[in-house]
Amino acid sequence: MKTLAGLHKDEQLAVTLAPVSRMDLIKYSGASGDFNPIHTVDVEATKAGLPGIIAHGMWTMGNLAKLFTPYYEEGFIEDYEIRFAGMVFIDDVITLQATVAEEEIEGVYFHVIATNQKDKTVIQGKVKFRKYA
């Protein structure tokens, strides 16, 4: 596996997830303690004016961080900043990407984004991966 420090500007880490399932969101509700029913119960989502249940924004943000997990010996996520831009529905196919924006001695800056199968942005932001000295 390539090291993160070996990545250059515009190079990318990326993964496409399996289609989002209700069970994914039930598990995240339990693990995070966020039991807002618009994420798990159809009728509550409908009452809230949504076309169906939606993923927790933090589920998508949590997933995206895994692009960096394999590099834990090299450094850690010092800054992770996300704007929630669109909703994620059941059966959506989400692609997570991190692109090197800038390299510095102390760390690597990434633009991060998650898009759905229609190439619509659902979350986007930045990561600063801090390298251990």
Partner: peptide
């Protein structure tokens, strides 16, 4: 597991002991 990131650095005790932290760590979120 709920964010699809069941990496041994988070969940495998032995793996954590041998890592630079001497321990397991938690995901950033």
């Amino acid at each position: 597991e709920s964010i699809g990131d069941a990496h041994p650095i988070f969940i495998d005790e032995e793996f954590g002991k041998l890592s630079r932290f001497g321990n397991n760590i938690a995901p950033p979120t």
